[in-house]
Design a protein around this nucleic acid. Sequence first.
DNA 1: CATGAATGAGTGTTCATTCAT
DNA 2: CATGAATGAACACTCATTCAT
Lengths: 209, 209, 209, 209
Amino acid sequence: MYKKLSDEKINDMLRFGISEFADKGFGGASLSSIAGKAGISVGVIYKYFEDKESFFLECVRYSLKDLNNVLTEVAAESDSLKDSIKDLVHTLILYSREHEEENRLYSEIVSGRSEMSVMLAREIEEISAMVYTDLVRKAMDEGMCRKDADPSLFAFFFDNIFMMIQFSYNCEYYRERLKLYCGDSIFEDDERMETELIRFITGALGVMV
Amino acid sequence: MYKKLSDEKINDMLRFGISEFADKGFGGASLSSIAGKAGISVGVIYKYFEDKESFFLECVRYSLKDLNNVLTEVAAESDSLKDSIKDLVHTLILYSREHEEENRLYSEIVSGRSEMSVMLAREIEEISAMVYTDLVRKAMDEGMCRKDADPSLFAFFFDNIFMMIQFSYNCEYYRERLKLYCGDSIFEDDERMETELIRFITGALGVMV
Amino acid sequence: MYKKLSDEKINDMLRFGISEFADKGFGGASLSSIAGKAGISVGVIYKYFEDKESFFLECVRYSLKDLNNVLTEVAAESDSLKDSIKDLVHTLILYSREHEEENRLYSEIVSGRSEMSVMLAREIEEISAMVYTDLVRKAMDEGMCRKDADPSLFAFFFDNIFMMIQFSYNCEYYRERLKLYCGDSIFEDDERMETELIRFITGALGVMV
Amino acid sequence: MYKKLSDEKINDMLRFGISEFADKGFGGASLSSIAGKAGISVGVIYKYFEDKESFFLECVRYSLKDLNNVLTEVAAESDSLKDSIKDLVHTLILYSREHEEENRLYSEIVSGRSEMSVMLAREIEEISAMVYTDLVRKAMDEGMCRKDADPSLFAFFFDNIFMMIQFSYNCEYYRERLKLYCGDSIFEDDERMETELIRFITGALGVMV
DNA sequence: CATGAATGAGTGTTCATTCAT
DNA sequence: CATGAATGAACACTCATTCAT
């Protein structure tokens, strides 16, 4: 009670929010359940956020702020397209491994049907869309990959696979689906995934060796 | 799973269920609204199904039973890998265009968190997993594509892109995301999508010309 | 539970609604408290009414449908203005005595500040406004009362007193106020009230003897 | 009832309280909104008052202390009953015009159901009850009006009309009701109201000319 | 056996009230 | 002593589920 929620509690509020939204979806999540788990009162959520939607959005932002940044930073660092892909794929798999909840929340929002969807898509995907497209375009200009690609769509396809990898490590349906293709062992052999993914993408882009 | 009541009514029950679940999601859908639209009583849903979730699952099965079959049939028909890809991509885009509801429902289940995810993934994805993997394996055996591919994972990546295309034409978040890459015009230029997708996939698989 | 609320229960729902709204006002009344007292579930109120406001309005209508009708009928029955006033006053006091709850609800709505106010005023007051005005006008035409009156305003003043009498028998503040003027005994001497009220009004209207 | 804090702030607290209670009613008013507008903290309200109701009562007292005093002073000033009535009616209409907030608050309390109703009625109505009764009694003694009146009840009826006029200029329901009798124009013709009200009352009291 | 009215637990949200700061 | 963040009970309202008819 009483004075200023400790930073830790505020953090808990968001963490348990993320967890609940990731598990039950926006509609299924209950604010009082979140408050209970975080050891705060329902009212306090409304001190910090306008309503359930605002709170959800903040959870999403808090959760995903690094997600794509990590990848876009990696994309910017490497010199050649080839290295970029290698680093991206490596980071992607690591990230998928280490951010279960964030990735499940991500999967939750992409299936949402509210007006938030448009806003969130812009916020979350805009930068990576630009970065990946530039990556492809630059490689084309520099003769580092096939010349006949449509950079926007190739970047899009490429990002599609990335997105699906994240889900495939973290969301039940996707996990099971990956098992159908590769068996349980795939979850214990990240190197295999990494190698093949690099092959697939460099092949698609016609990356020069 | 069920017995009497005019077949037509049972059909309506499922069709309107599909429509409502696709539009509003599992949580947002209301059984009485569905019953109302189908011209039956709520009670009858409970005669035929255990609870909302069971009914939802049956709607999903009913809706998606052809979804991937269409693609697997196409995959089986063509002789060469190259033709298969061409036909698959063409069919995929057509299908994405013409089965809005099914695709939105598909997106609803993949993000779902029920214990049924495992069962559903098997039911829905098993055949295409096999077919695509075989397609790649056969092409490798016949020397029609690169030799160094892992057929399971390459089929998986390839199916991932297909899945994302379906969502990208039908679900809000994904649609907005595609716009970020290509602008609004992409939704009026299916040929562009088709061409580039074929290029990307044939490139990735190293399909021989 | 289960099939069709008995007519008695529906009646209870309205009666306890009236009682709660009369006691606590629109804002202060609680639908679950009403449901509890009436021995029904909250949900059932929503089966019968759109929302709290609709339910409130129905309670008001149910409660007040006779209120002014009683008076307007009396006004129509008598031949002379003098007799009308006598009968009206008599009926008014009887009614004030016998319809505690209705009168308290009436007092509740007149102090309301919602958009309902305008609608309710029209529904409840329109007929008596016309009847009383006509009563005065007719008496003027027939030379039964003073000629210099403004029939609309005289009818209005006259109805004002009627309204206040209703409140003065049923609402705490008004009751106490009446006591300040006349002492407790006034509540045990309806004849005194009746006689004086007739005198006051006939005097005001200049009724010919 | 309270002690420190700059007098100005205490004043603000009450003034904004009055305004909020008049606009939204007891239930609708929010203490933090009032505190916010008055530039104080909610806590300070609780330092000075037991709870919301006590604060409300103090607002009422502060607001209404002059309300009836104004009229009772006017009643005392004039010599003849006739002049008194003229002056009272004139002042009443002016007051109704110029004290919207106080009058709406007045209407809020009279319909209130708290245990304080009794106390408030005494505080607010006692003096005018005496003054009006004396006015009538004195006029009777002096042969300035009819002899057969019951001074208490005649004063009561007369004050009833006054109260209703106040509400009819300021409260939605009552305003609409007045419109039903006289049309919108009545709100732009105070002279008409004044003239007729004087006629009605002098008639009722049988004031000698 | 279909019906759909009734149930009641559960939701988001508000706000009077408390008391650590 | 004023502050205002935190509390939590209370509200209107929804809807999956039940079972008398």
